[in-house]
Structures are given as structure tokens and as C-alpha cells.
Amino acid sequence: MSKKKDFEPLIVGFLCNWCSYTGADLAGTARIKYPTSIKIVRVMCTGMVDPSYVVKAFKEGADGVLISGCHPGECHYVEGNVKTMRREPLLANLLEQLGIERERFKLMWASASEGEKFAKAVQEMTDILKPMGPLNLGGGKKIG
């Protein structure tokens, strides 16, 4: 990241294999451009995303975390995404207490055909995170 003039946020995306990951592939096939900020981690279902993964991403230096899965009612595993939906607000509250602003953590639904929606969401999140600057968690320090 050394020689970059502008701050480029790092967004870790957890995308479910069946809808959003396929949708993200579609965005590619359709050559829809969106910021390189997002780095995608494929999961089988958003229900698989342990809140610890989200915290881990922030700890490792992510400026934002995006979870994207099938629309409610369309989860490949019936309702794995409902479990994610239940975890999200509590996790968001916890993150805020830990100084991680609400804007940095987002849950969305994008179907396999919504490549454009996904690309837009990445653009939007990037635009929001840029002026906020790096998250810079200081938790790594030994003392002090």
C-alpha cells in the first residue's frame, strides 16, 4: 500500500457460493467495473459466517466487511441466511462498542443474477469508507 496517493479501503467480502458469489462472477462476465477494494472469501452459505470471521477481518486490517447472500427465502439451504440476519444487528452493536463504525459492516442480499447490484454495493461501500479513512485498530500493541 506504500506508494498509493489515495487511501484505498480494504473490504473483505464473505459471499455465499450459490447466489452472491455467482452474482459476483456474473458482474465479471458482464465486465462491470467496480473498485478493487473488495477481496472475496467464498463461503457455502452466509449462515457459515461466524461473527468471529468478521472480527478477524477487522483485526487483520480490513476497513470494511461485507456479507452478501441469497435473498431471504432463496437461500440454497432454505434459511441459512436467516441465521446471519439474526446475528447481524447484535454483532453490529458489539462492533460499535469496539469503535468500529456501523458503516464498516454491511449485510446485503444479491442473487446470482444481480451482478450489477453487487458491483454497485461495492462501489457505494468504497465511497463511504474512503472519506472515513483507515480503521487502524490499535489492538495489536503489547502495552500501553
Binding site: P51, M85, R87, P89, L90, L94
Partner: peptide
């Protein structure tokens, strides 16, 4: 986070607003 997940996953609602309401009853998650 693991405790949070274990508890939140079992919230008895599929409705985002209701989930939020239940969630907010927990004043100090951290």
C-alpha cells in the same frame, strides 16, 4: 463473538425489524 453467535443464531424471529428490537434489549453486548 462465539457466545454472541450462539445466542443470536437462536433468536426466534425471521423478521429483521423484530430481530433488531430483540437485539436492542441487550444493552451492553461487549
Amino acid at each position: 463473538t462465539q457466545l454472541l453467535s450462539a445466542i443470536a443464531s437462536t433468536i426466534d424471529s425471521d423478521n429483521p425489524e423484530e430481530i433488531k428490537k430483540i437485539t436492542d434489549q441487550l444493552a451492553d453486548p461487549a
